[in-house]
């Protein structure tokens, strides 16, 4: 798998979430995703960016263009924060579970919207969510 292009954006205030959505939209169009896949990726990005802001106390997102071994193109998003971390990842991935005031669909829903989903978290250190959509 090779990374052909990357870009990073801060997620510090609410308007940053809107910016991340717009950037992700441009990248999905560039990748040539169908309208439905574009919508799925942007929605997942919106959920994850909000999580980074609300639960992680802010952080960053890295957008990357991927090409895998058989020449398939994809888009990878990595959301990173230095917040309190998630003590029980399986619980956080359960539909309807929320530690804040949300619907508890952010993490579990984003996982369904993307092709690949990975979450690493350490209590007291922060959380890193990696998602990939293949074309």
């Amino acid at each position: 798998m090779q990374v052909t292009k990357t870009e990073r954006f801060p997620i510090r205030v609410q308007s940053d979430v809107v910016v991340v959505r717009q950037k992700v939209r441009n990248w999905t169009i560039e990748l040539g995703l169908s309208l439905i896949d574009q919508t799925k990726v942007i929605t997942a990005a919106s959920e994850l960016a909000r999580n980074t802001l609300e639960y992680g106390g802010g952080g960053e997102v890295e957008l990357a263009s991927l090409k895998n071994d058989i020449g398939k193109n994809g888009l990878r998003l990595i959301f990173e924060d230095q917040g309190p971390g998630i003590p029980d990842i399986n619980l956080a991935l359960t539909d309807g579970y929320t530690s804040g005031g949300g619907l508890g669909m952010g993490l579990s829903g984003s996982r369904r919207l993307m092709n690949e989903f990975n979450i690493e978290s350490e209590v007291g250190k922060g959380t890193r969510v990696t998602v990939i959509k293949w074309k």
């Binding site: 439905i36 919508t39 929605t43 959920e47 669909m105 579990s108 829903g109 984003s110 919207l113």
Partner: peptide
């Protein structure tokens, strides 16, 4: 609501 939005919402679990 646009079709793509509706499909995504359902997939999201809402």
């Amino acid at each position: 609501m646009q079709p793509a939005v509706a499909i995504t919402l359902v997939e999201l679990g809402l």
